[in-house]
Simulated assay, not measured.
Amino acid sequence: MTAITEAPVFELEVPYQGLAPTATADFNRDGFIHLSGVLSPETIAEYEPTITSEVIRLNTQHLPLEERDTYGKAFLQVTNLWRENEKVKELVFSRRLAGIAAKLLGVHAVRLYHDQALYKEPSGGITPWHADQYYWPLSSDRCLTIWLPLQETPLEMGPLAFARGSHNFSYGRDLPISDESEARLKQAVAEQNFEDVVEPFALGDASFHRGWTFHHAGPNRGTVPRRVMTVIYMDADIRVAEPTNDNQAADRGWMPGTAVGQVPDTPLNPVLYDGRVA
């Protein structure tokens, strides 16, 4: 693990004051929320260079864009950066961010599933319609992802977009992210009249979405990578469920040694926020 000198960034531990009184109810209704000023531009600037350098160092995708499949064109993907770099760990373990997740989920505490950097290169393709929880062998829907862009993200860079209310729609939950999920879910979203909500992100904005919320992103038509850090949080009391597909069976590796029916209380899944602890 790369050692770093201590960075004087305290915002990560200070509670976020921007949640409206209706935020939890809005999140439950819509399946997502877009929040402004989750982190200051100064804090983003403190961590973006390190995250980017780690993505470059750890990236294993070396095919030219034109030779990749749809998934490969969507983004460069590097997971559990917190285990590689202490500075990235500061961001991933932020009590501020985890506290937002707990409040939106309506739980007293959340633990880490894993983090994931998603970098959409210039001319990178679409991110097909999908729901993240297809991949997660978890016993409830009390889990979510923060999508934290590391630069301003105008529409031409392909910000994340959500089908409002689609987390209550069970069709398509058997689809991995693919050309098939793009075609079938795009049609289903239109047929069900779910609003496809796509908005630009200012620097410091972040979105949070539930595991079963269908979402997608457009191509990056900009000239620089669309750099995004994500963290998946789960109810601290959630349990591992029997996998329903091969991807879920593989994803049990993020919770090593945890049997079906057990809480994933492992060194890789620490509690990041507990509202009962001062």
Rank of each mutant, 00 (worst) to 15 (best):
M229V: 10
H216K: 15
H215I: 14
H216G: 01
E67R: 08
R239Q: 14
P159A: 07
F169Y: 13
V14E: 12
Y119M: 14
G204A: 11
E195I: 13
G275C: 03
H34G: 00
R239D: 00
R57K: 13
D251E: 11
L112Q: 02
K73S: 00
V9I: 15
A241S: 15
A190D: 06
W254V: 12
P219Q: 05
G253I: 10
E90H: 10
A206P: 02
K73M: 10
F169N: 13
D30L: 12
R164Q: 14
Y171G: 09
V271R: 11
A23D: 11
G218F: 09
W254P: 00
A25T: 07
E180G: 01
L12V: 09
H108R: 15
R29D: 04
F194D: 04
T79A: 09
D141P: 00
Y233D: 04
F201L: 07
F27N: 01
E180D: 13
K186V: 00
N245Q: 08
G222K: 10
G261V: 05
G158M: 04
A3Q: 13
V55M: 14
P225G: 07
G218E: 05
A259T: 01
Q248K: 03
E90W: 02
G37H: 02
A102P: 01
Y171C: 06
Q17V: 10
S123D: 12
T24N: 05
N220M: 11
S170A: 12
Y47R: 09
A102N: 02
P243K: 06
E48S: 11
G72P: 05
P21H: 13
R142C: 06
M157I: 05
K87Q: 13
R142E: 11
A259H: 12
F27A: 04
W82M: 10
A188S: 11
E54V: 01
Y47V: 08
R142I: 08
T22V: 12
K120W: 01
D132G: 08
F10R: 15
E195Y: 06
P21E: 06
R252Y: 01
H216F: 14
R96E: 01
V9L: 14
S207N: 07
R68M: 12
N168H: 15
E242D: 09
T213G: 05
F27S: 02
L12Q: 07
L35Q: 03
G37V: 00
V55P: 02
A202L: 01
G261I: 12
R83H: 04
